[in-house]
């Protein structure tokens, strides 16, 4: 019956501190970032007047375009690999594991290690004198350490797929767990075999979790700084490394701001297109 909503003025009052903090620490800085990207650097300050020169530079120069393409490509690969690896795992926990809770705890414990050290662990594993090379040498499977393991996009993808695994498992698990088990029984009852049932019922109903996980992984990994710095090398460096260089080393803040804005918009557009396409595909499949 009507009337559960209390006084809406109290509601706005409760919401206002959070909105104020976010306005001050999020909206204002982003606005400033946009303003800065329309300036040009002059010594330690900005030159007078407004210019689109930074955007010309960012969009015009092929080295930046390559960097954007590589960042998006690596993130897309990470997202895909992480989802593909995580789905069967989440499926197992949701439908077949006997001690669900223990499995969930076991799957999340590695993520309580420092992010830096988790990434660094892969440097230990893949490095020239690292675990794989020293192991293989000792087993006399190779006589020279392999140098192709580290400092390339592949190393970045593997490391990120490991680092973000929990962000794929948990949302997918939640959406699988929510599926009403009688729907599956109904599908079997209506003549679907295990595979068809999975494709027609389980997979479509778990898509919200998959889409959520994809966004949760794609957005932050595109802007990741630590992993490309530690295991990427020059061939595996990403856009965040260039932004950091412009801000901290070169001191060209307007260019850094333009790079940041373009990458943010790019990520948002790709993520938006992806969600729209995935929803449309899910609808078409029905």
């Amino acid at each position: 019956m009507a009337g559960t909503g209390g006084n809406s003025r109290t509601g706005y009052a409760l919401l206002s501190p959070t909105l104020a903090v976010m306005g001050l620490a999020l909206a204002a800085p982003l606005l400033l970032l946009a303003v800065t990207s329309l300036k040009s650097q002059a010594g330690i300050g900005f030159a007078d007047g407004w210019t689109l020169a930074q955007y010309g530079e960012v969009l015009g120069r092929s080295s930046y375009r390559i960097l954007f393409a590589r960042s998006v490509g690596i993130s897309a690969a990470v997202t895909l690999v992480t989802l593909l690896l995580a789905y069967p795992m989440a499926y197992f926990v949701a439908f077949h594991a006997r001690h669900k809770f223990a499995w969930l705890i076991a799957l999340t414990i590695p993520f309580w290690t420092s992010y830096l050290l988790r990434v660094f662990a892969w440097k230990i594993i893949l490095g020239y004198g690292g675990v794989i090379n020293s192991g293989l040498l000792r087993l006399h499977l190779i006589d020279q350490p392999l140098s192709m393991l580290l400092y390339n996009p592949f190393a970045v993808v593997v490391t990120l797929a490991h680092a973000w695994a929990a962000f794929a498992i948990l949302p997918i698990y939640v959406s699988l767990e929510k599926i009403d088990r009688s729907l599956l029984e109904a599908a079997s009852d209506l003549g679907d075999g295990a595979v068809r049932r999975f494709l027609r019922i389980t997979l479509p109903l778990s898509m919200p979790g998959v889409i959520g996980a994809a966004i949760l992984i794609f957005v932050p990994t595109t802007g990741d700084y630590v992993t490309p710095s530690l295991v990427g090398g020059p061939a595996g460096s990403m856009i965040a490394n260039m932004i950091e260089v412009q801000f901290n080393r070169v001191g060209n803040w307007p260019l850094g701001a333009a790079l940041a804005l373009v990458s943010m918009v790019l990520v948002a557009v790709i993520a938006g297109l992806f969600v729209t396409a995935a929803r449309a595909a899910a609808k078409a499949a029905r």
């Binding site: 999020l26 800085p29 982003l30 400033l32 970032l33 966004i215 949760l216 957005v219 932050p220 595109t222 802007g223 990741d224 700084y225 965040a240 932004i243 950091e244 801000f247 850094g256 701001a257 940041a260 804005l261 990458s263 943010m264 990520v267 948002a268 993520a271």
Partner: peptide
């Protein structure tokens, strides 16, 4: 949640 950390940091 939808903005890379580096953008939050520099802005």
């Amino acid at each position: 949640l939808f903005i890379p950390d580096i953008v939050l940091g520099i802005s």
